[in-house]
Amino acid sequence: MAEQPTPAPARPRDAAIGTGLGRVLLLVYGIFALSASARALVQITTHFSEAPLAYLLSAFAGLVYIAATVGLAIGGARGRLMALTSCSIELIGVLVVGTLSIADAVAFPDDTVWSRYGSGYGYVPLVLPFIGLWWLWRNRPRP
């Protein structure tokens, strides 16, 4: 092809975490923030009594994704801390809820984003925190 490849400029050390691959993460976290919290809102307002634990977990997951999205978007030390905290909670959440939803299906009669390690969402919820944490680690502040 005659077209020139895009030259890849070296990424500055102090580049915002919400740029580059971070902007892709921002989009994906945004999608999950929206879908998890919208799902929780519908579940809680229409049939909360059917599976209160699952629906509260949905709402919690939604808040975690919102925090991660906002953290990536605002950047800086505070944004980093927000993103780091929410990615860690997300990783623990998907592992714990994923395991519990398989071991104790009675407690989880209805699905959350994290049920069965996020299989209803193509296992993206399982992979996402690893990518997020790797990205934050790669862009850690260095003197």
Partner: peptide, 29 residues
Amino acid sequence: ITTVAFAPVAVYLARLEPTRWGTLILGVA
């Protein structure tokens, strides 16, 4: 509402990111 807003949001984000990651944003969308 989400569906109709999706492509414009992706284009907006991709325009902010004139690197390979901008192309990946379009791919994810």
